[in-house]
Design a protein around this nucleic acid. Structure first.
Lengths: 258, 258
DNA sequence: TCCCGTTGTTGCTTTAAACGCAACAAATAA
DNA sequence: TTATTTGTTGCGTTTAAAGCAACAACGGGA
């Protein structure tokens, strides 16, 4: 999990800028000054000047056709640096490709960040069902298979915080009882893999396993996601085993011996 | 090219924060407060407080082992949004894969940003020669094949600026004469493809072709890069044709009809 | 292991810079 | 076209960022 301390003693104009950047989303990739001004409760002029600064450094880009702002290429430059310095990123791609080939489903690598699961890498299968997830997407920890794996191996304190923040019921299957989650995570640690059967989205199942680094710490999760029609009882065992094998392969590439 | 105007009328603390983010690189992915303070000529306390703010929003991450700062996951989240809203990104992957399979060399998609070429996407070949480029990497426009393609089809003003900024001689083959570059780019536009024979790095050749969007504008370049031993006279014509075909395929997927 | 040099953070004061207001310009809608 | 909403900029006020310095916390070396 990342450091989110020191809420005080911070630079408010920088915070404004970062909040502006974060307010862009897959659904709303283009924003206007007024939108941001209203949403973030900042003065129009503050937003305008902040965007101007962000634009001058390439973090946002003013679309000359729509006159709206969108995220800029500086973001891409920086993400390339993050990726290349995340060992998991480098080592996992060939293994992911192979897993997608054998399982026939989309696979992801994800890590825990700020009490959420964030997808670092994705290899899509050929089936036309798409865009459930994307690189950079964040999801809750307690109702995705990858999130549950990460949560199961994370310090107890993380689970406490997740529970404190509330367990929202996304579907009929979402576990919202703190005690039930605790038992569930204990079992995941026992088994070495996690399932999510429609716990976040109706009709979507997934399987996840932990990835260890050379220190023996769980640093990320490998997950296979697909519609429940394809990830069904008949195929479950096979895909689970393939996922376990793949995560063992990635772990060993990261220097984990066991 | 992106907007880099309004050097005045900007928020200096935001600029500091963005400069700090940009100072991370592939070679130096971890930075200390003092490093940044010295490099950017900012007071230690300013850097410390800025980093603290960046950390609280997840843009940097304080490595608890080394006590150094590195780029954070918020960057990855945002880059996912940029990618998914760049049409080229979505449409090019399968074509790139096929091109890498047939040509046997690494292929990239790149765009022009701030008078540089930036690589948006990369599919690596199986050969063990690696890490010449990476997603997010920036290179000069005038001595890479992708850069020259983008430059050839960009407004004249861009070339003017590039020349004004100076044409650094990276190798014996780098073109540093403004008149020569003009003629060279004119020929590229005539041919519809560009070569770079060791113009940026000794021993590295590349081939690039333009990608058009539905408005008929060149929005990006497709390039194939490899060591000169493999991209030699014998193979050049074949790979050039494959690259042309692939870029036509991507262009048509973007709605370009011709 | 201990020590010393270097580094990171924080309180406080000064000063500079960010904010809000308002007016103008520009774009969009009617 | 006009009317209305939206984006930018100048200016004065006020807040907040920068700099200094002290302290704490590492880290390297003996």
């Amino acid at each position: 999990m990342s450091t989110r301390e020191n809420r005080d003693n911070q630079l408010s104009s920088v915070r404004n800028a970062l909040r502006i950047l974060k307010s862009f989303s897959m659904e709303e990739p283009e924003k206007r000054v007024s939108d941001l001004s209203e949403a973030l409760e900042l003065n129009k002029s503050t937003v305008s000047r902040t965007l101007s600064t962000l634009a001058s450094e390439g973090f946002v880009f003013k679309n000359p056709e729509t006159n709206r702002y969108q995220l800029g290429m500086a973001i891409v430059s920086l993400s390339g640096i993050v990726n290349n310095n995340t060992d998991i990123y480098k080592e996992s791609l060939p293994v992911l490709n192979e897993l997608v080939r054998t399982s026939g489903e989309t696979a992801h690598i994800s890590v825990l960040d700020n009490y959420e699961v964030i997808y670092l890498q994705k290899v899509e299968c050929n089936h036309p069902v798409r865009f459930l997830t994307h690189v950079g997407k964040r999801n809750p920890l307690y109702c995705t298979s990858a999130g549950k794996v990460l949560l199961a191996y994370a310090p107890e304190k993380v689970l406490e915080t997740v529970i404190e923040r509330g367990l929202k019921k996304y579907t009929e299957q979402t576990i919202t009882d703190p005690e039930e989650i605790r038992d569930h995570l204990a079992k995941i640690k026992e088994n070495g893999y996690a399932y999510s059967f429609e716990e976040l989205s109706e009709g979507v199942n997934s399987i996840a396993t932990p990835i260890y680094d050379y220190t023996g710490k769980v640093v990320s999760a490998l997950s296979v996601v697909g519609p429940k029609q394809r990830i069904d009882n008949r195929k479950l065992k096979g895909i689970t085993q393939q996922t376990i094998n793949a995560s063992k392969e990635i772990s060993s590439r990261l220097g984990y011996w066991k």
